[in-house]
Computed example of a mutant assay.
Amino acid sequence: MAKGECNCGAVAFEIHKPIQDVIICHCSICRKATGNNGMALVLAMNEEFTWLRGQEHIQYWKKPDADWEGWFCQICGSTLPGRNDDTKLYVPVGLITEGGENLRVAHHIFTASRAAWDEIGDDGVQHPHAFGSYQSE
């Protein structure tokens, strides 16, 4: 089990299963959403995820002409867990406050579109695009 919250603590959530494998998405959408080299995330099935508080503070933005939504706290602006598809959510790992002790980077996705300055220096498997059932861009 893992718990997490936004920067101001207004929005909190729980994942009802152990988490361990981190996916780093290097697509241009995730880079722009975070202002970084991408988004480090874990995936959680809808039934494994519960909002604990603050749903009234969640705002989202849908990218025109793309199947991508960015969810964020309207108070502090923190990126929040959001819809990955109809069955699961992406959860930014930087929000995890409990249960993230065994996290490790397992996959890098959309490495074909990573920034020129982005050097991947861990053992995570690199995928030029998405892998398995993960979808983005």
Rank of each mutant, 00 (worst) to 15 (best):
M1R: 12
M1H: 13
M1T: 13
A2W: 00
K3G: 13
K3H: 12
G4V: 00
N7G: 10
C8W: 07
C8T: 07
A10G: 11
A10M: 08
A10N: 15
V11L: 09
V11I: 14
A12R: 01
F13W: 12
E14L: 05
H16A: 12
P18A: 15
P18L: 08
P18E: 15
I19T: 01
D21F: 00
D21V: 01
I24Y: 04
I24L: 10
I24C: 09
I24T: 14
C25M: 10
H26E: 00
H26S: 00
C27V: 03
I29N: 10
C30D: 03
R31D: 02
R31N: 05
K32D: 10
T34F: 05
T34K: 06
G35F: 05
N37C: 10
G38I: 03
M39Y: 08
M39T: 15
A40T: 12
L41H: 11
L41G: 01
V42N: 00
V42T: 04
L43H: 10
A44V: 06
M45L: 14
N46A: 14
E48Y: 02
E48F: 01
E48Q: 15
T50H: 08
W51L: 03
G54H: 07
G54N: 08
G54W: 06
Q55G: 03
I58L: 04
I58K: 04
W61G: 01
K62C: 11
K63H: 11
P64F: 07
P64Y: 06
P64N: 13
D65L: 12
D67N: 13
D67C: 04
E69I: 13
G70D: 08
F72E: 02
F72Y: 12
I75K: 11
I75N: 10
G77N: 12
G77L: 12
S78Y: 05
T79E: 03
T79G: 09
T79C: 08
L80W: 01
L80F: 04
L80G: 02
G82H: 05
N84T: 03
D86F: 05
T87S: 15
L89Y: 04
Y90I: 13
P92W: 00
G94T: 11
G94I: 06
L95F: 05
T97Q: 12
T97D: 10
G100H: 09
L103G: 01
L103Y: 00
R104Q: 10
V105Q: 12
V105P: 02
F110W: 11
A112P: 02
S113Q: 15
S113C: 09
R114K: 15
A115Q: 14
A116Y: 09
A116M: 11
A116L: 09
W117R: 12
D118L: 14
D118P: 09
E119F: 09
E119W: 07
G121E: 15
G121T: 15
G121I: 14
G121P: 00
D122M: 06
D122P: 04
V125C: 04
Q126S: 07
Q126F: 02
P128D: 06
P128Y: 03
H129R: 13
A130V: 05
G132C: 07
G132T: 07
S136T: 11
